[in-house]
Design a protein around this nucleic acid. Structure first.
Lengths: 207, 207
DNA sequence: CCTGTTATGTAGTGGTCGATACATAATTAG
DNA sequence: CTAATTATGTATCGACCACTACATAACAGG
């Protein structure tokens, strides 16, 4: 009973994962509404019926692309955060790792989750809300990581982890826009310097 | 010679300024690509030919709407910044005034210049670049204001005004996304607290 | 071989996009 | 009044949108 049953019918003529990667790139560069099915099929090297047979519809393809984006592009930041010895290093690692991703010249600048669907027609409000949920989840994840450091003693007692998470998530989202506007890695790193300069004041002085 | 020459031909049957305001609201809420000409004409209470006769094309209307947005919605922040006695108060006033605008329940959340056209089809790249230019100009304006405080002695000597402007502009842009995601005024104000906690470290400790 | 099942390529579907042609209405100039 | 000029409403324009009907191709099981 190992593996799955042998597929019946004509086998798929393209690499689904590679096609998804190509679609992710298009969504990342043009946004959800800016990426037409025609753009997508061209980049994926397939025709529209193959896209719909394999992925369902444009929105479903987008959701899969976002999932792939988070798994692949977010891996570096997650690893760096996991390895950080204390809360401050963890937050700084998150900023630096994302800055590296945002300014990789081989890829579109900035974060796909932030940039790909901010506004749009009411018809696509669900897609917008989907990304909003992703962003909120990443704030919650950051808070949870901070709380864990609080429990471990690697974040001073009394620190407002919710406020910390909100602040650094906001800076991170702003960095995506800066990257989109063409800011260099050096510029973004200096902005991260500024954000880290707030650390002591935030951790110690929260009323 | 006072006033302009009497207009010839049939007079316009609608208030151009009011129509522009209505268009601004639609662009603000849906973004450039998400706002169809049909949406616009409906909100403006006119038909398409009137729109094109009065504003040229969709892109020209958008540019006028952005200009109106900056003049009207940006007025509060400019006034608050002008009245601030020193650089720190000026930056904080900028954040607080914009937060008030971003969370006005009578208006779309967040900043139109940040949200209305991040990505899109290559055909609309010019619109995207137009807003990028606006954002860069606002960073430059902030730097200029900081420099003026430096010359006046209301900002410590040696402060890196370019880095300060970049950092606080980034936070401000992040605040737009937070507002778009539904963050309350109170939440945004706490994020601004965090940003202001960085002030001393940024002003004093820039290498 | 034949039947069933799935994938593919061609060629569309109705709908909406931004933008206009055209006839008519409403005004000024003379 | 007539002529010129500008605005408006109706009714579109071709292009593109997301999506699919349909015939055919390529496989598995029998």
């Amino acid at each position: 009973m190992a593996g799955r049953a042998a597929p019946r019918g004509r086998p798929r003529g393209f690499d689904r994962d590679a096609a998804l990667r190509a679609a992710m790139e298009v969504f990342w560069r043009r946004g959800y509404e800016g990426a037409s099915v025609s753009d997508l099929t061209q980049a994926m090297g397939i025709n529209a019926p193959s896209l719909y047979a394999a992925f369902g519809c444009k929105e479903a393809l987008f959701r899969e692309a976002v999932r792939l984006y988070q798994e692949s592009e977010g891996a570096g930041a997650r690893r760096a955060m996991d390895e950080a010895p204390d809360a401050r290093a963890m937050v700084e690692a998150m900023l630096r790792a994302n800055i590296r991703s945002y300014t990789d010249p081989a890829k579109p600048p900035g974060c796909m989750v932030v940039l790909a669907a901010m506004l749009g027609t009411p018809e696509n409000a669900k897609v917008c809300g989907f990304l909003t949920g992703m962003r909120k989840a990443s704030v919650a994840d950051l808070k949870k990581r901070l709380d864990r450091h609080g429990a471990r003693g690697t974040l001073p007692r009394g620190a407002d982890t919710a406020a910390l998470a909100q602040f650094y998530a906001t800076v991170l989202q702003g960095l995506s826009i800066q990257a989109r506007d063409g800011a260099s890695r050096r510029t973004l790193d200096r902005i991260a310097d500024g954000a880290m300069a707030a650390w002591d004041g935030l951790v110690g002085g929260t009323r």
